[in-house]
Design a protein around this nucleic acid. Sequence first.
RNA 1: GGAGAGUUGGCAGAGUGGUAAUGCACCGGACUCGAAAUCCGGCGAACCAAGUUGUACUUGGCGCGCAGGUUCAAAUCCUGUACUCUCCUCCA
Length: 435
Amino acid sequence: MLDIKVIRQNADWAKEKLATRGIKPEEIDKVIEIDQKRREALNKSETLKAKRNQVSKDIAQAKRNKEDASEAIKAMREVGGQIKQLDQEVEDLTEKQRYILLRLPNFPADSDPIGPDESYNQEVRKWEEPTKFDFKPKAHWDLGTDLDILDWDRAAKVSGARFVYYKGAGALLERAVFNFFLDENTKEGYTEIIPPYLVNDASMQGTGQFPKFHEDVYTIVDNDDPDKPRDLTLIPTAEVPLVNYFRDEIISGDKLPINVTALSPAFRSEAGSAGRDTRGLIRMHEFRKVEMVKVCKPEDSWNQLEELTHNAEHLLQKLGLPYHVVALSTGDASFTSAKTYDLEVWMPAQDKYREISSCSNCTDFQARRAQIRYRDEDGNLHLAHTLNGSGLAVGRAVAAIMENYQNEDGSITVPEVLVPYMNGMKKIVKQDSLI
RNA sequence: GGAGAGUUGGCAGAGUGGUAAUGCACCGGACUCGAAAUCCGGCGAACCAAGUUGUACUUGGCGCGCAGGUUCAAAUCCUGUACUCUCCUCCA
């Protein structure tokens, strides 16, 4: 959520910044106008309340002296009514203002490429050249089926489209990958967390998924009354429980920056992406992801974003997967982010880079919604800055490993760093069928 | 799922309709060569608004888990709700 004071005091700047993210300047004018009215009503109400408090004291005194106070009580009855009316007005205006503010995205950083969509993203750097093959590389979904380590048909039977069974060496590979990620992140100074996978609405709002992105997630309903959603949603990313861990907390300044990492499933309805990435591990309703979250001081967050990005890159480098880093344009960056670097890994069968990590500095946008604050050496309170990044998406990493490490005979060489995590297995070959 | 108890400042803890005791902690001062003890004074965090102005202060609002209601006035009465604890039930 943006700071209404910042908008109020720098209206033109705010309009200009948000225009690059597709927000019309009239929206800003509207919220400023509402704010103006709100403060006027608030002032009137507070003046009357001050009066009421004073008179109430007098009434109490009069009663103690056994004097008659019916005159004052009568007058206050009227004032009470006015206050009620004004407070209602303030509440309505606050609600209107909040409605707009909760739906405005974060201010983009000055360094963001300006443009309405992903075609304006800029490559920042590239690591290694795309993998070369002297045969035609297979797509990971075919490799998975042929090796009998991924079972799409039975997942479709049991759950539906965009679900998968990992089997045998496939399951082992998935587990190896996320354990490797968690171990590496821990070595880099992140504290491992196992968070809840169901969160309440306040948490979804704290990190910015709600109120705008309801349709992207799965919310639990009461079986007795399916129209009534419970206050629980399956997390679309561990970012939600990790950032909300700090919600409504005051952190001691000397603890910052705080780094946490968690493996979790991520549940996404993928509404609006029908027809895209219909095959393979790229776009699932349920996938595992290791997430990294940082909470830091405002002056430190841009350095922390670079560090976070490097932490994620380090994982790809150790796995030997070619990738490049892309700075997202103002129109493509996520709602909460001021600046985002996407890491895109090379996918040979598609002959292109695909997103495997998104590292964002959310500045104080989430912290304001979630009231994440810290106390500095002087005892003053400030909003913290929050950052999050995948480190990494597990399913997509498995897909990238399968495609980049495939051999002509259809087997998959296990990346060296994963061999210990695979109980010494160096190559994945065709598995026996279960049935 | 059922029953009961609880939620008040950094901590402890009183307060059954008149505007949040008290203690500890903390901050300032006195005493002292200095410290401790003692004494005096201050002190709920956060938030919002207005003003002086400039970033600190003044005034006001708000503030007793949260949200409503009753009342001239609510920590206190009423309703709803969240969470914590105990017991029962169920359960990996």
